[in-house]
């Protein structure tokens, strides 16, 4: 039984998974026939595989949700796509620019051209002022996993929402907000043990924008600390001492610098 003793468990596994070449497979076939112990083990693994396939097969027969069917629309390459768009635009022009969409498109572009840090800051502070005082519904989604999945999909990049930030700030939840054309904004809200609320507002800039260092803007009831990195704007607003906000910003900055995924621009 020398041959059996020399058999590694990796090789036996490769045998079961059909990964061996024909010659070696036939040798193992013989060994298994001759050794009841080996046969027993092979049988146990095969049975396990069969049971696994059976247990995990019902999902394959479930009806596919329509939203998934709608998402399955492969695009051709960029040139073909551009041609389709050009054709549609040409057709639209021929028919006459009667639809709102047709008149809206150039205007959206015009607005985007004027996007700048000031506008971003204004939106962030406005969103803070509107939503933090709301006692009952400060956020739209509370559960973090749902929030992250949703925002990540809508923003087109991984959105980090750490459960906790420095100075006892804990995540309450967040919401999606209008930002710029094609650049929705996200707001995350945190609360400290004294009940003070802080928001993180972020969105992609609508035109290429130079990165900035941390900047602080003081208001009457709110201080905002913001920065722009890789064409994304981040603003932290709250009624907390500057030093504390700076700590929080650093934590956020590290978090986002680390997790800026392939979807980020």
């Amino acid at each position: 039984m020398k041959a059996v003793d020399d058999l590694t468990s990796d090789e036996l596994m490769a045998y079961i998974d059909g990964e061996l070449d024909d010659a070696r497979r036939q040798e193992l076939d013989r060994m298994v026939q001759e050794s009841p112990a080996l046969a027993h083990r092979v049988e146990a693994w095969r049975e396990q595989t069969a049971r696994l396939r059976e247990a995990f097969s019902p999902v394959l027969d479930e009806p596919v949700p329509t939203r998934l069917l709608h998402s399955a629309r492969p695009r051709r390459n960029r040139w073909a796509q551009a041609a389709v768009v050009a054709a549609a635009v040409g057709l639209g022009a021929a028919v006459g620019s009667m639809t709102a969409r047709w008149t809206l498109a150039p205007r959206a572009e015009l607005i985007a051209r004027h996007d700048q840090p000031n506008r971003f800051l204004e939106q962030a502070r406005l969103a803070y002022a509107v939503y933090t005082p709301d006692p009952r519904r400060p956020v739209e989604v509370r559960r973090r996993s749902a929030l992250v999945t949703w925002l990540t999909r809508r923003m087109g990049r991984p959105i980090a929402a750490p459960d906790e930030l420095p100075h006892g700030l804990e995540l309450i939840g967040g919401r999606l907000l209008p930002g710029m054309p094609d650049h929705p904004a996200a707001q995350l809200m945190y609360q400290d043990p004294q009940g003070r609320r802080v928001t993180v507002y972020l969105r992609g800039m609508a035109k290429p924008t130079a990165p900035t260092a941390f900047r602080i803007v003081d208001g009457r009831h709110v201080t905002t600390l913001y920065w722009i990195d890789r064409n994304w704007g981040y603003a932290l607003s709250g009624n907390l001492p500057r030093e504390q906000l700076l700590d929080v910003s650093r934590a956020l900055y590290r978090c986002y610098a680390r997790h800026q995924g392939p979807g980020a621009e």
Partner: peptide
């Protein structure tokens, strides 16, 4: 328990 599984060792 399957003591027979001991037969094949990992090299």
């Amino acid at each position: 328990g399957r003591t027979s599984l001991q037969v094949v060792g990992r090299k």
